[in-house]
């Protein structure tokens, strides 16, 4: 009984709809007469509880259903390349003969492109992001960190088309004039844009990883006469390794799935890049470019679905890796 008044209070706060319900239930109670007011309120609060639980359960079931449909549909359509069109899986993965009009679906160029731009982004943006995370957690004055942290988290919310647009208007002309690249479009442009895009994720998560380390580790190191730099490299970095791994993996996940910004600067040429500044294409950019023109049920559409399926599998593998890395944290 002790929680009844609390529940009742809450229902009063919920407004007119709830109020009419209360009136109705009181009227109902008068009609029944056998039940005391107290016990009827208890019953009502239990009914609310049941409704709430069912609403939440319904929401959860719907989401799980939607995700399941998505995965099953993608798996079904994505394997038609191999089941219906009899195109060998190994050719899809390792051949670069891509001419869907002539039933050639070798996607090695796009897979390579995805791996290269993502690798570029994580090699450049990863260490940089971790460095800023260390700075915010260990070096920056408290006031500065208080201002910078939300500012950086805000960057996550910038639409990718904005990053792509800035890449297109600032970075591509810069690369065109200052490098060997004739157009400026290419692997480097895409990699740099992605490096910047993953920074907020990596910074924010690696800062959290450092902040979650106990003060006792810092004190233990300082009490041995270490400098702050020795403490960071010798104790904090290795201690935060699982959290930093998560930061990097989620950075990779963000980079690998990005389509729009990459598509705007990568050059979209279905060939292996001949250098770091040469144009190429990735799984996401190829899907974006070709999906409009692919006839329904065609081989081309099937191949695009296969690429989408591959992206989904990579994303799933990354999430599993995160789980694995976090388990080490205990």
């Amino acid at each position: 009984m002790s929680d009844v008044p609390k529940t009742d209070n809450r229902s009063h706060r919920q407004g007119i709809g709830e109020a009419t319900q209360v009136v109705a239930s009181l009227w109902f109670s008068v009609g029944k007469e056998t039940l005391s007011v107290i016990s009827l309120q208890a019953a009502k609060s239990h009914r609310n509880e049941r409704i709430a639980v069912n609403v939440l359960r319904g929401a959860a079931v719907f989401v799980i259903f939607a995700i399941a449909v998505l995965i099953v549909y993608l798996a079904f359509e994505g394997t038609k390349t191999f089941s219906v069109d009899k195109f060998p899986v190994w050719k899809f993965l390792f051949s670069s003969d891509y001419d869907p009009g002539n039933n050639l679906g070798g996607s090695a160029v796009f897979i390579t492109g995805t791996l290269l731009v993502t690798g570029f982004a994580i090699v450049v943006g990863g260490p940089f992001g971790i460095a800023v995370g260390v700075f915010l957690s260990e070096v920056a004055p408290a006031r500065m960190a208080q201002i910078l942290k939300p500012a950086i988290e805000l960057l996550v919310g910038i639409p990718s088309v904005v990053y792509g647009w800035l890449g297109l208007t600032l970075l591509v002309p810069f690369l065109r004039t200052h490098t060997s690249s004739p157009s400026g479009f290419g692997l480097a442009a895409a990699g740099i844009v992605l490096s910047i895009m993953i920074l907020p994720t990596v910074i924010s998560l690696s800062e959290d990883a450092f902040r979650s380390l106990p003060v006792s580790l810092r004190e233990g190191s300082m009490a041995l006469g270490s400098t702050r730099w020795q403490m960071i490299t010798g104790v904090l970095l290795p201690s935060a390794s699982s959290g930093l791994t998560v930061a990097l993996i989620l950075g990779i996940a963000r980079a690998i799935g990005e389509a729009l910004a990459v598509q705007m600067v990568i050059g979209n040429s279905s060939q292996f890049p001949r250098g770091i500044f040469a144009p190429t294409a990735s799984l996401t950019t190829e899907i974006v470019i070709d999906m409009g023109g692919a006839p329904q049920g065609s081989f081309q559409e099937h191949v695009l679905f296969s690429m989408a399926l591959l992206l989904l599998l990579i994303a799933m593998a990354l999430i599993l890796l995160v789980r694995f890395a976090l388990r080490g944290r205990g």
């Binding site: 106990p214 006792s216 580790l217 004190e219 233990g220 190191s221 009490a223 041995l224 006469g225 104790v235 290795p238 201690s239």
Partner: peptide
Amino acid sequence: HRIGMVFQRPNPF
């Protein structure tokens, strides 16, 4: 370095 410290709770790295 010259004045070391041992803490209340063991703090192994």
